[in-house]
Every structure is written in C-alpha cells, then in structure tokens.
C-alpha cells in the first residue's frame, strides 16, 4: 500500500543506519549468550565447575532425554493448560475494557482512574503476589478458609493448595489478574493511535457502538492485536515467576511449567546446563511454531478487515484511504 512510495529506495540506507544501534547492542550483549545456549545443548556441560566441554557422541542425546522425560511432558501440558485458562479470559476482559474506555460517545467518567488502577497488579513484584495468595488460601488457617467456614459453605477448613486442579486454577487466575491491565493498556494505546477522524466519520454515519468497535477499532488495531497474541504466547509459554514462587511447581508438579523445569535442571543441584539448554531450544521451536501460525492467520485477515470497513461508510472510506 502506501509503503511502496516512489523515492523510498533513495532513503533505504537510513533503514540500515537507524537499526544499527539495536544491531550493535544485540551483538555485544545478547549474541554470545544465545549462541552459547544453542551450543551447550549438544554438549556434556554440567556441574558447578564445568570441566572441558565436549560435544556428545550423539549430539541429540540431551534433546532425547528431555523429550522422553515424563516430568517435562507433564510440564509442557501444564504450561499450555495454564496459559489458555489465563489468556482467553485475559484478552476478553481487556478487549471489553478497551471498548468501554475508548468509547467516544460514553466518555465514561472516572475512566482515567480505572485505567491507572487496573494496571496496578502488574507493578507489584511476583514474589509479593505469591506470598499474598499463599496466605489467602493457606491451610488450616487462612482468610479464605475462615470466611468459607463462617458462611457455612465449608464444614471445616479445606486444604485448597494440595489439589492439583485448584493449584493450576489459582496460578492461571493470578496470571490473568496480573496481566489483563497490561493487555488493556497495550490495546488502548493502539486505539489512541487511530486517526480520530475515522471515528468521527463513523459517528456521522450513525454507526452503532457494536459496529464501530468491530468494524473500525478492531481492524485498525489488528497489528497491535497480533503483538498482544504473540507476546502473550511467548510470555505464557515462558511463564516462570508465579509458578516458581507460589507453590514451587507443586503440588505434585501440578504447576510445574517448562520454564520452572528448565530452571530446576540448571539450578536445583546438579547444574545440568546441557539439558536445560536443550529444553530451552525445544521450547524455542515450539513457540516459534505457534507464533508462525499466528502471523500467518493474522496477516491474511489484515486486508480483510480493511475491506470490510470500507463497506460501512463512503465518507470514512475516503478518510481511511488518506490515512
């Protein structure tokens, strides 16, 4: 579209110049660690004071060990389960709040305060949140138990944190609660980037809120939505802090995610750097696979959305074309 403008080639060198600082910083600070990790997955590097590094006779031995490790398989399942249970409600609520807070006709009073407060759980460190929820649901004495017993829902205190389902549910809930505000802010900033005239035009045409949201807002923040989906996928599949700090991956490995697994391989005693690196690379490929699917899916819909939108009103089509 507008990117194929004449005269672009002349300025092409600035593309290189402007990305140079990033490239340099990356080369200096991140390239070595990444290559190092990729490499040691094929070696016998382990132990606190690693000796000489040798590439294994069967270079994929570590990968095989990780993939056939029942604890890793369980962790992979947990990771996906907890991510889905947290992400679907998280994105839904964030979209709903975005719709409310960016609605130009409602001009919701106090929305500034809401926006500020809703992001707040993301500010507190994960360690504090973990302690807080542990105390809330502790056994046999904890606020939740006390209340449930007093109200009569429970006869006696119940040990919530020993049940696998409950533990996973709580981790998913904490993740949801810590991150929906973040997602909402991302989406709102995307909406704020839309040319207001598009909305004005739609209003003049008498489009309903529903139409405006689905046919103007969503198509116009599609690139940001892709960002949200991809980063949340990456963040979710690398979920670490809460599962590690809340219940140490327990009970019975129910909240053990792959990142905690990787950490345990490397730091819980045997310093199995090689296996940790192999597991990291496996996770990298899994994440890349799913991200690619997201990219493919949303790239196609990108043009769809714009086409649909032009159908709503001629006036806004004109404006939209200008933007």
């Amino acid at each position: 579209m507008r990117k194929k403008k004449t005269g672009m080639v002349k300025y092409g060198k600035y593309g290189y110049i402007f990305s140079l600082p990033f490239a340099i910083a990356f080369l200096v600070f991140q390239l070595y660690p990444i290559l190092f990790t990729a490499f040691i997955g094929f070696t016998d590097l382990k132990g606190v004071v690693p000796g000489e590094i040798h590439v294994l006779e069967n270079p994929f031995e570590n990968f095989q060990q990780v993939l056939t490790n029942p604890v890793f398989q369980g962790a992979l399942g947990n990771t996906f389960l907890i991510w889905l249970c947290n992400f679907i409600p998280q994105l839904s609520l964030a979209l709903l709040l975005t719709a409310w807070f960016t609605d130009r006709r409602w001009k919701l009073k106090g929305q500034g305060i809401y926006k500020v407060l809703i992001y707040m759980p993301n500010i507190i460190t994960a360690a504090t949140i973990a302690i807080l929820f542990k105390s809330l649901f502790d056994y046999p004495v904890s606020p939740v138990n006390d209340i449930l017993v007093k109200v009569g829902i429970l006869k006696e205190a119940h040990n919530f944190l020993i049940s696998k389902g409950m533990a996973r549910g709580l981790v998913a809930f904490i993740q949801f609660w810590m991150w929906y505000g973040y997602t909402m802010l991302i989406l709102i900033s995307g909406v704020l980037g839309i040319n207001p005239e598009i909305f004005e035009a739609a209003e003049v045409d008498g489009a309903s809120r529903w139409q405006v949201f689905w046919q103007i807002t969503i198509p116009n923040i599609k690139t940001i939505l892709l960002f949200t989906l991809v980063t949340s996928l990456i963040g979710g599949l690398n979920m670490f802090d809460i599962p590690k700090l809340f219940l140490l991956g327990g009970p019975d490995n129910a909240t053990l995610t792959t990142s905690v697994f990787i950490y345990n391989q490397a730091f819980s005693g045997s310093y199995l750097y090689n296996r940790a690196a192999a597991a990291s690379m496996i996770m990298f490929f899994i994440i890349m696979f799913f991200s690619s699917i997201l990219f493919l899916l949303l790239r196609e819909k990108d043009t769809d959305g714009k086409a649909k939108y032009t159908g709503v009103s001629k006036k806004s089509e004109k404006k939209g074309g200008e933007a």
Binding site: K46, V71, F72, N253, F261, Q265, S268, G269, S270, L272
Partner: peptide, 10 residues
Amino acid sequence: KQNVAANLDV
C-alpha cells in the same frame, strides 16, 4: 523417584 531422576544427575 521420577522427580529425582528427572531433575538431578543421580
């Protein structure tokens, strides 16, 4: 036993 085997070099 499975947990120990999976996480430690034992």
